[in-house]
Each structure stands twice: as structure tokens, then as C-alpha cells.
């Protein structure tokens, strides 16, 4: 088990047969907020159809979007694509007012993979993980901390955690991994 560095150096934190946890490399991440009527126009501008069901996700090339609320989306893409995204939004702002706010440095993301992934999440997340369909996600809570959970596969997840809460959440995840490995 690797220690989490204060700088959040990406890399594997836990490896094992039951579950593996890695701190992922940073991505460009934005909060997008707008009114329902403007969803088509913004979708066209950024090149991704914004999903409207809360928890639903959409992908296009490097862009990934999750609908977090009726007027709120989280968009992430690689750093090179972020300027395109910012410019595309700026270009339509006058006609289609919205809020695009850079939050790239706000969160860090860990990946959780392995047959024990669901059990591991159940140490802190009160949601019924079985009910989160593959390819969807949600904003939820992990041990009292707001997080965004992405389900990428049956046993593959990502968890976005606000930077200052990450040592607490990741520390608990590591403890959970040791516990799962001992069983």
C-alpha cells in the first residue's frame, strides 16, 4: 500500500486481487450550469449531448459529462481540449447565458477496481451501489464527504473527492482495502 503524498502524486495506492485503488492523473474539469431550455444550444456548442436524467453520463472523444442536477453538469476533458470548451461556451454566452466555471484543481479522482470494489464503497457510501447502472454515476456522500461516483463497469468505479477531504476519504479507503484483503 502506497502513501498518499500531500501533492497528490498520481499512481497506484493499493494493489491486490480483491481491489486496487489508484490516484488518477488530473483532468480539466468544469462545472456547467444552465437552464433547461438552453440544453440543445449548449450541447451543440460543446459537441456533446448534455444528458438530462440526473446521474446519466455522456461521452464524446475526450469529453465526459455527468448530469448532477437539473441545471448542473460536470464536464471533464483533457487539458488540451479545455481551451476549445471555454471558447465554445464563451462564443454562445451572449445568446445562451450559462455558467462555465473551471474547477480542475478542486477535486482529485481515485479509481477503484476489483471484485471487492462494491464492498469497499459500502464502508462509506450509504447508497445501494447495485442500483447504479454501469455507465452512470451520482453525486453522493462517502463518510460524510460529498463525492461524485462514476460506475465504469461491474467492478470499476471512479470517485471524485474535493482536495482537502481526499486524505480522509482515501485513508479510509485504504483501511477498507486492508480489511477486505484480510477476509
Amino acid at each position: 500500500m502506497m502513501a498518499l503524498t500531500p501533492e497528490f502524486t498520481p499512481g497506484q495506492l493499493v494493489s491486490g486481487d480483491v481491489v486496487s485503488v489508484s490516484l488518477m492523473a488530473p483532468v480539466a474539469r468544469f462545472s456547467l450550469r444552465l437552464r433547461a431550455a438552453d440544453i440543445p444550444a449548449v450541447s451543440t456548442a460543446i459537441g456533446v449531448d448534455l444528458p438530462t436524467r440526473i446521474g446519466a453520463c455522456a461521452h464524446h472523444e475526450t469529453v465526459e459529462v455527468m448530469c448532477l442536477g437539473p441545471d448542473e453538469w460536470q464536464i471533464q476533458t483533457d487539458a488540451n481540449d479545455s481551451v476549445r470548451l471555454i471558447n465554445a461556451c464563451a462564443a454562445i454566452y451572449a445568446q445562451v447565458p450559462h455558467s462555465l466555471t473551471d474547477i480542475s484543481a478542486r477535486e482529485v479522482t481515485i479509481s477503484i477496481e476489483g471484485p471487492g470494489a462494491v464492498d469497499l464503497l459500502s464502508i462509506g457510501c450509504p447508497r445501494d451501489i447495485d442500483k447504479i447502472a454501469i455507465g452512470t454515476g451520482c453525486r453522493t456522500v462517502f463518510d460524510g464527504v460529498s463525492t461524485v461516483l462514476w460506475r465504469d463497469g461491474e467492478t470499476r468505479f471512479r470517485l471524485d473527492i474535493w482536495r482537502s477531504f481526499a486524505p480522509h476519504v482515501i485513508g479510509l479507503i485504504q483501511t477498507g482495502c486492508a480489511e477486505l484483503a484480510a477476509q
Binding site: S99, R106, E107, W162
Partner: peptide
């Protein structure tokens, strides 16, 4: 009001 809020406490 057409205005939106985003927490950026931890971005900066």
C-alpha cells in the same frame, strides 16, 4: 434570476 453559483473554495 439567470445566475449560477459554483463553489471554487478548493480550486484556488
Amino acid at each position: 434570476l439567470k445566475v449560477w453559483l459554483t463553489s471554487t473554495t478548493e480550486h484556488w
